[in-house]
Design a protein around this nucleic acid. Sequence first.
DNA 1: TAAATAGTGTCTGTGAGACACTATACA
DNA 2: TGTATAGTGTCTCACAGACACTATTTA
Lengths: 209, 209
Amino acid sequence: MRIESTLVSVDVLALRFDAAARAVVLGIAPRELEPFAGALALPGVLLGRGERLRDAALRAATGKLGLPEVASTGQLVTFDEPSRDPRGPTLSVALWATVDPAAPADGPVWVPLDAVPPLAFDHNRIVSDCRPLIQDRLWRDAAFTSGLLGREFTTAQALDVTEALTGDRPYPANLGRTMERVPGLHRTTQHAAAQAKGGRPPSVWRWED
Amino acid sequence: MRIESTLVSVDVLALRFDAAARAVVLGIAPRELEPFAGALALPGVLLGRGERLRDAALRAATGKLGLPEVASTGQLVTFDEPSRDPRGPTLSVALWATVDPAAPADGPVWVPLDAVPPLAFDHNRIVSDCRPLIQDRLWRDAAFTSGLLGREFTTAQALDVTEALTGDRPYPANLGRTMERVPGLHRTTQHAAAQAKGGRPPSVWRWED
DNA sequence: TAAATAGTGTCTGTGAGACACTATACA
DNA sequence: TGTATAGTGTCTCACAGACACTATTTA
């Protein structure tokens, strides 16, 4: 294939809340083709002619990570360093994608967002540059937040996700007030099933349909 | 030229503070080539192979608007609607660029950001989608703000710019406190030359080198 | 002095953060 | 009852907004 103009790739930061580990994990996979064959990398595909960014992101999540479905996606930034791909100058549009925590998610390697191993290309830079942008979306971008936590979640899980993304754990009262103000999010009167270790069962929050 | 893959164009929102009109104006120019020849449009160029987004934005500002220089640039968002260009699917990366208010700026048509005429392609949509992103940068992004106001400016100009972008005029005391907290920005002991219409001369603010 | 513009001191309300205290579970 | 977890009431502080009052200029 003769490369005539700038190529565009879409690289995906696939995020999933691992309730058991109380962490937000990033989906990566070993590359099958050169360059960097065998090395871990963000799932990425070349943008097809006329393809939407979101569709390319879904294609990457499905094809490279083997995920059956993705909750929601959104745009982050575009990386334009000409030497970022050894095959030649390539633009990379970074997108986030959230995976429902309840859905099965075998296939990808899931690594905590705070302990991402060395990746192919400039992918470590992409992750670190996008980290603050992702953090900023929590509780502000409803699609992102509901994609990450699922349609229904407990206060405890909300605390865990916030701690995983921002680095420190908010006080329950304060996070509760933040959540009350998120449009479309409501505190229910239900309580989650009791924990293994005992303790008061947390209350449940739910997104409007 | 045979189009093999997705083309990438860079469209620039060139912004300039017009102190006399107390407005922030957007630089546009009639298109010279088809499609939309003769219609007003944002300056845009096709991204060259290996070209940086910033360089393409400068090329657009220089070539299409005839501006001698640009103060600073930055990325906004990428538009991916496949039908946005009748020639075929084209990605458009939107960038802002600021033009020093003191520099001569003949050439482009300058229109107030609040009264943008119908433009070619989806450029009106680009402007309206990017408007909140631009507004958000004022006083938060030092490169953007200093590019728009210049190295030295008065409190009155700061009030005007803020009013032009946000829609309402802050109280001087409040804006002063906001500016005190902007890193690299200092209130000087100088006062500007007196106004034509009389009134107390405004004090001068300056960016650190 | 009047009109026009700029700047200051201070009050208020909102929201984030902090923390002691209360509630509900299991062993 | 003790331990572990969750939730509540309330205090404090920072900051945005509001506004009356003061300051400095031209005519």
